[in-house]
Write a protein that binds this DNA or RNA. Structure first.
Length: 592
RNA sequence: CGGGGUGUAGCGCAGUUGGUAGCGCGCCGCGUUUGGGACGCGGAGGUCGACGGUUCAAGUCCGUCCACCCCGACCA
């Protein structure tokens, strides 16, 4: 590709609304342009990088038996109604009507499209197991896109779906993906860790997220350096210790005027934070038979801890959760700021499992200006559910080995999910087993967003001058710079560079040729910004010595090689760069 | 949806007490220059986010709305 004809302009300054490095650099280097919030155009450079990433995904999916297909982006609402997600998913889903007034959906994921196909196509156990995948656009109307390509509304995703007779088959395909995903990220040279994640509403019994650790990430993870435990904060467990072993004392009402928060309370009563009980009011949508009901939940955690809403949702089987309005709290007889479940009826009480081990807590008296001291679980109140509902924090004890865990930020670059038979059952996607019985297909789903992966690679590999792409992800393998200038040798330089460009192409090398009439400074700076790993320079300085200059983007050292060896030498360097990627791959076994 | 911020040329920005819009980069032409973002001369490019109001006069004052960014909520 000649840069004189490339649709891509580099910018000296990043747009002021780009904050994180990958966003700034991808825009400055001419890879992407923004059209609207969370909607981007991939310019020719980005398109080539994305294609490389997607080809890596293809190869790794094919290697574990995947077959590529393409499922539609626009779906009739019926298939989403069949799984219940037409109602369940909120405004995040794109909906419109076609010219006949028929409800349509912009796909945000493709489980529905998969079961719509397999319902008709899979009839016998002889067809299973199977693995299908596609690389397709998704639309998710996220309330807050951010960070350039990190979190967008329209994006391309490789999603695969495993189809099996039973859970054992799913376990195998899941383990295959677990390894294949490490290979995909490894080939993109992106360091990732796999952490356990929330299975959410999808049922199933296991999910992992692949996280690239970076401060610009939006998920919080808990990691244990001692034993390797790792989990998304949404589900991270930790060891809790009771702060006190004292005997239960007599319940006592105390006046605590204007002490509505835990901070006020401990200041006023001169007690430690851990000796208080914090009530968090949430409204949860809970399925009760065939009807959905909204219920008020009293979630109680110790005053020094935070409620983990994901854990709470899982504890009560809630479909949705939101903070309760003050009026909703008052309507059950509780007094905001002075609330507790003591003496109240008809509410759903969920307490953290540490509460029964925490004697003599201070809790609200359900009376304006008063709290109760020496509240004890069991004696003074009981809960409908006692389970772990608190959020793990930096420094908390590892659930396996008790060592202090670290809380770090990460970007979710991929996830794998054991769905089970849920979707198949919902739409009657069954197969006939060897015993003659109709059984639902057991599914798994697995996703990697290609744009987010590219952004993460850029986030990992950049310096003050620009991108430093691994060759496996770089839009071109070689950046050829011609410095013809106005010298008397310029004709010779131009011709030499042109011939080298043609020879490199003939040798099957992907070349970006800077044939523009620009000053050396401009060309070198643009080359650094675009970040192709290998740069070749044809200029009078080195041509005098019968050679051309080579330089790796990642190193400052420059070498001169004879012109007649330029193609072979370049091939060799490229091969070495690919080898380095291959050698850095580690096999990661899946341990269940 | 709550909090904060920003909207003036492709990008970054300035614009005074309200008086009819400017700078740098980029872009076009000519010339000089040519190994780390050159220089001179000439030029193109703006319904100042939108709508409404105040005023003789609005980029500037007032109101409403919209878009975009950041934090939070949310996130199959």
């Amino acid at each position: 590709m000649r840069m004189s004809n490339l649709l891509s302009q580099t910018l000296r300054e990043a747009p002021s609304d780009a904050e994180i490095p990958s966003h700034q650099l991808l825009v400055r280097a001419g890879y992407i342009r923004q059209l609207a919030a969370g909607i981007f155009t991939a310019m020719p450079l980005a398109k080539r990088s994305l294609t490389k990433i997607e080809d890596i995904m293809r190869e790794e999916m094919d290697a574990i038996g995947g077959q590529e297909m393409t499922m539609p982006v626009v779906h009739p609402a019926e298939i989403w109604k069949a799984t219940g997600r037409w109602e369940k998913v909120g405004p995040e889903m794109g909906r419109f009507q076609d010219r006949n007034g028929r409800d349509m959906v912009l796909a945000m994921t493709h489980e529905e499209a998969v079961v719509a196909i397999i319902k008709d196509e899979i009839q016998s156990y002889r067809q299973l197991p199977m693995l299908i995948y596609h690389i397709q656009t998704k639309w998710r109307d996220d309330p807050r896109p951010r960070g350039g390509l990190i979190r967008v509304r329209e994006f391309t995703m490789k999603d695969s779906y495993s189809l099996d007779r039973d859970w054992a088959g799913l376990d195998l395909q899941y383990a295959n993906h677990y390894q294949a995903y490490f290979r995909i990220f490894g080939r993109c040279k992106l360091p990732v860790i796999a952490v356990e994640s929330d299975v959410g509403m999808m049922g199933g019994n296991m999910a992992h997220e692949y996280m690239y650790l970076t401060p610009v990430g939006e998920d919080t993870l808990l990691l244990c350096d001692e034993c390797g435990y790792s989990a998304n904060r949404q589900i991270a467990k930790f060891q809790k210790k009771s702060a006190s072993t004292e005997k239960a004392k007599k319940l006592k009402k105390v006046a605590t005027p204007a002490a509505k928060t835990i901070a006020d309370l401990i200041e006023f009563l001169k007690i430690p934070e851990y000796q208080t009980a914090k009530v968090v009011f949430m409204m949860a949508v809970i399925q009760d038979g065939n009807v959905e009901k909204e219920k008020l939940i009293f979630a109680i955690v110790r005053g020094d801890m935070d409620l983990n809403e994901t854990k709470l949702m899982n504890a009560v089987g809630a479909k949705q959760l939101r903070p309760a309005e003050e009026s909703e709290i008052i309507s059950v007889g509780a007094v905001p700021g002075y609330a507790s479940p003591i003496g109240l009826k008809g509410i759903l009480v969920v307490v953290d499992d540490l509460i029964p081990d925490s004697p003599n807590l201070v809790a609200g008296a359900n009376e304006d200006g008063y709290h109760l001291m020496n509240v004890n679980y069991g004696r003074d109140f009981i809960a409908d559910v006692v389970t772990d509902i608190t959020a793990a924090r930096d420094g908390d004890a590892c659930p396996n080995c008790s060592a202090a865990m670290k809380a770090v930020r990460g970007i979710e670059v991929g996830n794998i999910f054991k769905l089970g038979p849920w979707y198949s059952e919902a739409v009657g996607a069954t197969y006939q087993d060897a015993d003659g019985e109709e059984k639902p297909v057991v599914m798994g789903s697995y996703g990697i967003g290609s744009g987010r992966l590219l952004a993460s690679v850029v986030e990992e590999y950049n310096d003050e001058y620009g991108l430093l792409l691994p060759i496996s992800v770089s839009p071109y393998e070689v950046h050829l710079v011609e410095l013809a200038g106005g010298k008397k040798e310029s004709k010779e330089i131009k011709e030499t560079a042109e011939k080298l460009y043609q020879d490199l192409k003939k040798a099957g090398i992907e070349v970006l040729f800077d044939d523009r009439d620009e000053s050396p400074g401009v060309k070198f700076n643009d080359a650094d910004l675009i970040g192709i790993p290998l740069r070749l320079t044809v200029g009078h300085r080195v041509l005098k010595e019968g050679g051309i200059e080579t330089k790796l983007r990642s190193e400052s050292e420059k070498n001169i090689i004879p012109l007649d060896q330029a193609v072979d030498n370049t091939k060799e360097t490229i091969r070495r760069l690919y080898d380095q990627v291959e050698k850095s791959l580690k096999t990661v076994e899946f341990e269940s």
